[in-house]
Amino acid sequence: MNRIASMARLVGGLALAAGVLACTAVGVADNPTGTATEKVAVVPFKLLKSGHMTVEAKINDKGPFTLIFDTGAPANLLNNKVAREAELLKGKPPVLFAPYGSRGDVKIKKLQVGQGTVENVTAMVMDHPTVEIISKHLGPIEGIVGFPFFARYRMTLDYRDQTLTLEPGTFQPPDVMKEMIKSLLGTEGNGRDGYKMVSPGAMLGIVAGEAGMDGSGLVVNAVRGGSPAAVAGLKAGDRLLSLDDRWTDTPSDLLQASTTLKPGKIVQAEIQRDGTTMKLRVVPVAGF
């Protein structure tokens, strides 16, 4: 067992290294004490010919620098030039092997994007070849701002006005690195060995049956007596099309949809019975 564990650790480490190379940004440990500003900020962005958007950002009061705003980026990224100018590499020992100028994670004390400010946010330092190509043609562009920034806000994206509206939020971006390692080295039932244990947010009393295809909904095999599903009127043989607006073609779909349930919070179950589609109100309960 130990050998397997240490192999998983080694391979996991390699995988993470590969990830960093690909800028796959598994290495983002965000400080959960980081805070976002209190006021609503309207941040203008620039739309590039390529369809990407850029924002002006100050890093520890240095700059502004032009960064690509990327909702698909799990990490912030800065090139070495900016990292030096913002004095983020101070005290970081030189490295012998730095593919694409990769210097690992740095902590930014203050990241300002327009009037939106977050404190204690992590960025990875790397001269990303793709960013450099874009920069060469449409630049200068010095990096990427992504999830660790915008997740702190209730953010509205509007391409017509070319603005990001940032309302103060309470969400603290989780530690991506920790979660990924946990999953990669995970125990049985946590994504390793091809399966993952999942718990609903609340109990319904539905036993899922055969999957449907392309929107035809899964078959309800049984409804537990006295359960919320039974009270709502669900019956064995019904096809469950959606739960709480999430499509339920397969038992896995239903399980996934059930993870966001909350005890006492009414949700809609859309079913098909004898060719008729109907919507039932279900009140899930705390239980198992």
């Binding site: 039932g189 091809g194 399966y195 999942v198 109990m203 009393g205 038992p251």
Partner: peptide
């Protein structure tokens, strides 16, 4: 690592109690 893009989801078991 024996990883799959889509792990099969397995539900916790059902006992039939409301807390």
């Amino acid at each position: 690592l024996g990883r799959k893009a889509n792990p099969t989801l397995v539900a916790r078991g059902y006992a039939g109690v409301v807390l």
